[in-house]
């Protein structure tokens, strides 16, 4: 399979996923969107193996690796910070100073807020990953030009 055909199929899969997502929102079946996402990623992974004109070498692998590692490092810091806040809410940790303090019942995050948080985190990770990829691609001479 050629690279361009692969990209075309990926585009079609993304469109299909979008349609399935809105359909599952419409009929309130969230598993439909989740399962189709997993199937789509699996399909893309299998298709990618069949692409013959992808030249991936150690430099491109290193760019991907570095970008993924840096994104993960940022991800776990943000995720842990948020989780610590959530745990503090569960444990009724009062603010300082303790005098004249009314202790309220913990306001646990509802599913809607959790969803917004995950969406924001996902967008941040995508932007960060793309940013890191561009940075490392530049660092390892991706857009260097030569006299040839």
């Amino acid at each position: 399979m050629k690279k361009n055909s692969f990209y075309l199929i990926c585009g079609c899969i993304a469109l299909a996923l979008l349609v399935i997502f809105w359909y599952s929102v419409e009929v309130h079946i969230r598993f439909l969107a989740e399962i189709s996402f997993i199937v789509a990623i699996g399909g893309i992974y299998l298709l990618r193996k069949k692409v013959t004109d992808f030249v991936e070498d150690e430099r491109t692998a290193r760019i991907t690796e570095k970008a993924a590692l840096r994104t993960f490092q940022v991800f776990w810091v943000i995720f842990c910070a948020f989780s610590i806040g959530a745990v503090m809410q569960i444990l009724y940790v009062p603010t300082f100073p303790r005098e004249h303090l009314e202790i309220h019942a913990p306001e646990l995050l509802g599913p809607r807020m959790m969803g917004y948080f995950q969406l924001a985190l996902l967008c941040l990770m995508i932007f960060l990953y793309v940013g890191f990829r561009i940075y490392y691609a530049r660092k390892y001479g991706e857009w260097e030009t030569d006299e040839e």
Binding site: D57, T60, G141
Partner: peptide, 10 residues
């Protein structure tokens, strides 16, 4: 040697 031209250039 089975790499990209960009790798040789880099």
């Amino acid at each position: 040697i089975g790499v990209t031209r960009q790798t040789i250039l880099a």
